[in-house]
Simulated scan of single mutants.
Amino acid sequence: MTSSTFAAGRYVTVVSDPAAEEYLALIGKRFPTVRFLCAKDAASLSCHIAEADILFAAGFPIEILDKARRLRWFQCSIAGVDSLLPIRDRVGNLIVTNARVMHGEIIADFVMAGTTMMHWDVARIMREQGCKEWHPRQVAPLAERDAWGDRPRFYW
């Protein structure tokens, strides 16, 4: 979407986030003709939502939807939009978009760390540590494993 897509004063975007002012500083540079309202907390969101055509937020209280008569687009600043599931029959023509690929590299790191923790059975180590016990065991390096566990890998 470009700045020219928005007519001056035609659409109102509410940015609801504790860091709303930081978002507004960045977004406002790119879309100078759009009217933005800052909602740092639930009370200010409740005040501004009736004016909103667009809502940029991680989520919103479900009851706020009744006040959001002009709302046409909800841009979720996180990947998950499952908070809308209980009201999916009430959202009508609301366009919902999210930031699903935004955390891709971080998720990859998390998955690798989780895989390593499971491989080394860190939960067992923590339990033993809590009991002041130690039961050593041999664990093959991850480089010698594949996704199916202990099967040997073959390279051609």
Rank of each mutant, 00 (worst) to 15 (best):
E63Q: 07
P141L: 02
L84R: 03
T97P: 01
K132L: 14
P86F: 00
D150K: 01
H135W: 02
P32Y: 06
G59K: 02
A25S: 10
R127Y: 03
A58K: 01
A140Y: 07
L55D: 11
E105R: 15
L94F: 00
P86M: 08
V91S: 07
V12G: 08
A25Y: 04
V34D: 14
E22Y: 15
F110K: 13
T2R: 14
I78D: 04
D41A: 04
R90H: 05
R90P: 02
P32D: 04
V34K: 09
R137N: 00
K29L: 14
V14I: 01
P61W: 06
F60E: 09
I64S: 12
A113Q: 08
G9A: 09
V101M: 13
E51F: 10
Y23S: 14
W156D: 13
V101N: 15
R100P: 07
A20V: 05
D66L: 05
S46C: 15
V96A: 00
M118L: 14
Y11I: 08
A42T: 14
D82V: 03
A123V: 12
R100L: 12
V81G: 08
S83V: 07
R88F: 05
D41K: 02
F36T: 07
F154S: 05
R153M: 09
V12A: 03
P136G: 01
A108R: 11
A147L: 15
F154P: 03
D53W: 04
F60Y: 13
I64A: 10
A19Y: 08
T115M: 15
E105H: 13
N98C: 05
A19K: 14
R69W: 07
R69S: 11
P136D: 00
E128D: 04
W148H: 09
V139T: 05
L142M: 10
A99S: 09
I107F: 13
T33V: 14
H103T: 13
V139E: 13
A8I: 10
E133M: 12
V12T: 10
W73F: 00
M112N: 13
A147Y: 07
C47E: 15
K29P: 12
G28P: 04
R88P: 00
S3Q: 11
L84N: 01
Q138P: 07
A68Q: 02
R100K: 11
V81Y: 04
S3L: 12
R153F: 08
Q138R: 10
A79H: 01
E128R: 06
L142T: 04
K67R: 15
A43E: 08
R70T: 03
R127F: 02
A20E: 01
Y23V: 15
I49E: 05
R69C: 03
A123N: 11
D150C: 04
W148P: 00
M112R: 14
G9M: 09
T13Q: 11
R90G: 01
G80C: 08
C131H: 14
R88I: 07
G104C: 15
R151P: 06
R70V: 04
W156S: 13
A113I: 10
R69Q: 13
T2F: 10
E128Q: 13
G80I: 05
V111I: 15
I64W: 11
D121Q: 07
